[in-house]
Write a protein that binds this DNA or RNA. Structure first.
Lengths: 201, 201
DNA sequence: TCCTTTAAGTTGACGTTGTCAATATTGACA
DNA sequence: TGTCAATATTGACAACGTCAACTTAAAGGA
């Protein structure tokens, strides 16, 4: 048995992130504690401090990784250049929503002030990329006047984030949202992207 | 000095709620700990358990009170029967947003899964009242076909909640949301309630 | 090759938290 | 007056984040 645990892990920083992600999926944001992560990786409870200043720093790094995944997912979907404008725009909404439904705890972490530092430059950078890409897509589609694009983009993100968040807290699940989530989202997007919804028969 | 602290507080349950609200405003949801509340009220750290099963129960009760305040605020605004339909509808949005800006920590608590139990019947009841009132107002205005009212109402709540939440995390504050919050919200509501925004000059 | 430096991991401690069990106090009611 | 149930206190426990002191090992220069 020469395969004893080496004193130096070698890639603990990455291992910590991986374990954090797994813990997050299983137990939710509250379950992602420094000590639990350390246990998972098989390292002492104070080892993580060498790689992340504190719990918030670790969770912020994790959130950044997760949001990068979302961004990459959108970009991949948009790589098809033949998509109609409305499809390209709603891609931002669909990807975000589906991600949240597939990994509710990850989405929850992203917006968990108190665990994540939303002033972190790296995290801000990724979120800005997401927003700017969305904004650019809207501007390119000519859906509204140029001066309204900002409002339009903010409204789109707000709509999707709001619906997603309310849904994750179980707000519509029970009674009113009889149509399961995704179709409802698409109905809202349709209303939003196609203003001719008013007073339809 | 006959004014010694009586052993029985008399109205500890209410005092706990009051102290929780004050702590919430000052320190945010994480600062509202059982022990801190007990200290504030001047009672032993285990006293609250007689009135609330655990921390989650206490914070859920607090959230219920806060949401009742919001609902009452909306109802008061709607008591004027001469308001135009669009004003009545946007009242839900405005009140919610202004409340969140005035008391950010309270709004944060409302949606803080892990601290608040969103399956609590009393809390659900208040939220249902809020949603149903909003839905009724939309249905009455005839803004959309009857079968679309549900989607319309959910979209409105999602839009406002999403914008509010993103704004509280500081998302637009820095760069893009140069127009301060309230005007931006009104621009979005205008876009939402008045579909003629498409391709305006 | 040996010695030093330094990054990385461990151990043990401290203060804080939520919660529980055991105990004490009090007010109300018989 | 005596009893009981509600209410409050005390003390304990485990888990947490963080820090300081220590140990280990790897790397690099002499």
């Amino acid at each position: 048995m020469k395969t004893k645990q080496p004193f130096h892990h070698g890639s603990l920083k990455q291992a910590l992130l991986d374990a954090s992600g797994a813990l997050l999926d299983q137990q939710g944001p509250e379950g992602v504690t420094i000590r639990a992560i350390a246990r998972e990786v098989g390292v002492s409870h104070a080892a993580p401090v060498n790689h992340y200043k504190d719990r918030e720093a670790l969770l912020t790094a994790l959130a950044t990784v997760l949001f990068k995944d979302i961004l990459a997912s959108v970009q991949e979907k948009l790589s098809d250049k033949n998509l109609p404008a409305s499809t390209r725009i709603s891609a931002f909404a669909i990807v975000l929503f589906e991600y949240a439904m597939a990994y509710p705890n990850r989405y929850r972490l992203l917006w968990h002030t108190g665990l994540v530092n939303h002033d972190d430059p790296e995290l801000l950078d990724v979120m800005d990329q997401f927003y700017n890409a969305c904004r650019a897509e809207i501007a390119g589609a000519g859906l509204c006047s140029e001066q309204d694009t900002e409002t339009y983009a903010i409204a789109l993100w707000s709509l999707v984030h709001g619906y997603t968040d309310l849904r994750l807290t179980g707000m519509f699940e029970a009674k009113n949202d009889t149509i399961s989530g995704r179709p409802r989202l698409e109905a809202m997007l349709d209303m939003f992207l196609n203003p001719s919804h008013a007073k339809s028969p």
